[in-house]
Design a protein around this nucleic acid. Structure first.
Length: 280
DNA sequence: CCCCAGGCGGTTG
DNA sequence: CAACCGCCTGGG
């Protein structure tokens, strides 16, 4: 299998990036290789001696698709400075978090896939989220063959509508079956147009996403951050709630955290889970 | 056995 | 509008 080798920019760690909870369809091997499906390609990424070794895509695909997908076109040195200027005024927590979480980048994932994935994620744990999504892909996603192995694309809205609530439930979704179905129905019928939403102001985009059953403030802001690349979106989950109480108890103005507050959120999230000894 | 997991919808006071 | 409660399910 031929591979593409490119220079790895500073502030990029594939392992942390794919293991920080923003995506659910990737595996990390014991040697640190990241594997998963991106745009109907099964790819592997490994960082080695300042290089990235990539399989599953050719030079052009890496350049056109993978670089933006990984967010390698962004200057995280500058982003970190911006984050520090907004969070550093409260205390030094953000500096510690940056140190631990350095290398995480916000991926540019597919909007639809991100939306469904974070509906599945509610009141759930990562291991089970991954299993559910995997089963949904195997049952309703379009298969493709690469190097003699069969892989699956993420199912389309149409295919989930066709599948129906019961078959969605059979993937182990539990009570979220109705939510996923409602979401698929709204996207498939055009009631929800993700491309249109992607052009809206963040506030309005939040509102529109929350018309889908099972999408509240947390899910919507995760979808905006991870699927729409709204890096200012700051999802508040139980971990971040704890972080805010613990380190920012004297208050923090969440309306004024800059254009990269969502990336800071990922740093803080990773930091807190790391400190709790958590399998991050 | 109980508790919880990167919430949300529905119902109450 | 804040506070609560139940929810599928698997793992600790």
């Amino acid at each position: 299998m031929n591979s593409v080798i490119i220079d790895c920019p500073e502030h990029f760690d594939p392992q942390k990036t794919f293991d920080c909870g923003q995506c659910f369809r990737f595996d990390i091997l014991s040697d640190g290789t990241v594997c998963g499906v991106v745009n109907k390609r099964y790819i592997t990424i490994k960082k080695c001696d300042g290089k990235l070794i990539i399989t599953g895509m050719n030079d052009e695909e890496v350049k056109e698709q993978l670089i933006p997908y990984l967010g390698l076109d962004e200057d995280y040195g500058e982003i970190n400075k911006d984050i520090e200027s907004h969070f550093g005024v409260y205390n030094d927590t953000i500096y510690s978090a940056e140190k631990v979480a350095d290398g995480i980048r916000i991926l540019r994932q597919d909007k639809w896939e991100t939306l469904v994935s974070f509906i599945v994620s509610q009141n759930n744990n990562i291991g089970r989220i991954k299993k559910i999504i995997c089963r949904m892909c195997e049952k309703f996603g379009e298969p493709f063959v690469q190097d003699g192995n069969t892989y699956y694309a993420f199912p389309t809205a149409e295919s989930l509508v066709k599948a129906g609530e019961e078959n969605i439930f059979a993937c182990g979704t539990g009570f979220r079956d109705k939510y996923i179905y409602d979401c698929a129905e709204k996207v498939n019928s055009g009631k929800i147009d993700l491309d249109r939403i992607s052009k809206e102001e963040t506030e309005k985009a939040m509102e529109d996403l929350m018309t889908i059953k099972g999408v509240g403030p947390k899910v919507a802001s995760c979808v905006l951050l991870f699927g729409f690349h709204r890096t200012e979106s700051f999802p508040i989950d139980v971990w971040i709630k704890r972080v805010l109480e613990k380190y920012y108890s004297s208050g923090i103005d969440l309306k004024n955290i800059g254009n990269y507050g969502g990336i800071a959120q990922q740093y803080l999230f990773y930091y807190e889970r790391y400190k709790s000894g958590g399998n991050v």
